[in-house]
Design a protein around this nucleic acid. Structure first.
Lengths: 211, 211
DNA sequence: ATCTTAACGGAACCAGCCTCCCATTAAGGA
DNA sequence: TCCTTAATGGGAGGCTGGTTCCGTTAAGAT
């Protein structure tokens, strides 16, 4: 993505950075929307720069210049998704908050559109290092947003002091994503509920105490 | 993969089934080996039928005819991997067996060659339904092989009666695969150990009792 | 308002992937 | 052993996806 570390010849450093105003932003929005549509529709393997350009109503040269390849599109989409993340819940109990979290994850993965997008993103990350980094960042952000929920639970004495917040959150998400991406089993509400109960039981046993 | 349900015109039903003898088998072996090499080397996105044919020392027409596409290759590789699965361990304690299992998974995912293969397989499954089914079958098989370990633990009274064996096993694997495929964090021995402890704590609490 | 030039867009060009055709090889049965 | 035909293999040709060229549009500065 980033290049031209020392731009001696006044080379344009990655299009869109010097003049991010009106048109450029509009183009990005249109392209990313088209990308999401395409992923939801036909999946990552069928992601095609030409089609994206056409449905976005944008010159295909622009798409190639700014994103370079299908993985480039997905990577940028991921950055975009990381920016617009929603805040965590606050039900008053850790169990309740975690349940909300798990249900949110489940709803996302189960949703036809979002499920397809996440599938595509995971596939793209498996193919490309840049994309993998973007995906890692995305989840670092997401986990960071929910960490306070665990801290509050700890303050209320619902789990032992010293519990690693993100570790507990990972334990909640893991069974859902595992089924979604790896074993391809259905992610039911039951699964989500059990993930919360199991993670909480382990947390109370002090399994997630920071080393 | 399978087609020609009613072969009225004596169409050859998927090449390799009527004459699976010497040459055909040799070709399959060579192609699957080449596929694994390629995946370990350059990953799924760069998987190229022509190159596979060349390195396998096989006509490229053959590769296209029998496997059709990169996902087809990965799907068959997966079937091949499912066939040659190794038996579960028996250390005498459930904790020990689960630890062995987790360590085995970790070693596989961490191994440069096998890690790349699994990454590719997950990516391919995200792109193609046939491949997804093959992947699901693979894990169904694997989980089935380890289920007795849990049953024995239950018999020894290490976990409550009625515990769902595969559910417990999934809980052990999930955190490892979640990091490997989704958040792309490093899968350390520490992570594996914690996965076992957490799963076991939940199991003892009766979280995985069959509904 | 005017100017500079970043960014976009159309179209021709190039290359690598896939398909088809037909000759060749060797399984499996008599 | 011989015969039938499943399966393989080389090569030509077409198509689709990706690249390059250059003219056009409009963002941001004066």
């Amino acid at each position: 993505m980033e290049q031209e570390t020392h731009l001696t010849e006044s080379q344009p450093a990655s299009p869109g950075t010097l003049r991010p105003g009106g048109r450029t932003a509009k183009v990005r929005r249109a392209v990313l929307d088209a990308t999401q549509d395409a992923l939801a529709d036909t999946g990552f393997h069928a992601l095609n720069m030409d089609r994206i350009a056409a449905t976005a109503g944008v010159g295909k040269t622009t798409v190639y210049r700014r994103w370079g390849s299908p993985v480039g599109l997905v990577t940028d989409l991921l950055h975009d998704m990381a920016e617009q993340s929603l805040p965590a819940s606050d039900t008053g109990s850790l169990a309740g908050d975690l349940r909300t979290n798990a249900e949110l994850v489940r709803a996302t993965l189960t949703d036809a559109r979002m499920g397809a997008v996440f599938r595509a993103v995971i596939a793209a990350a498996a193919c490309d290092e840049d994309c993998a980094r973007a995906l890692a960042d995305f989840y670092r952000t997401r986990l960071g947003e929910w960490a306070p929920v665990v801290a509050k639970g700890e303050a209320r004495g619902e789990i032992p002091a010293g519990t690693d917040p993100t570790e507990l959150l990972r334990a909640v998400s893991a069974p859902l994503y595992y089924r979604f991406a790896v074993t391809r089993e259905e992610v039911t509400a039951d699964v989500a509920e059990r993930a919360v109960t199991a993670a909480l039981a382990a947390a109370r046993d002090g399994v997630f105490i920071r080393a």
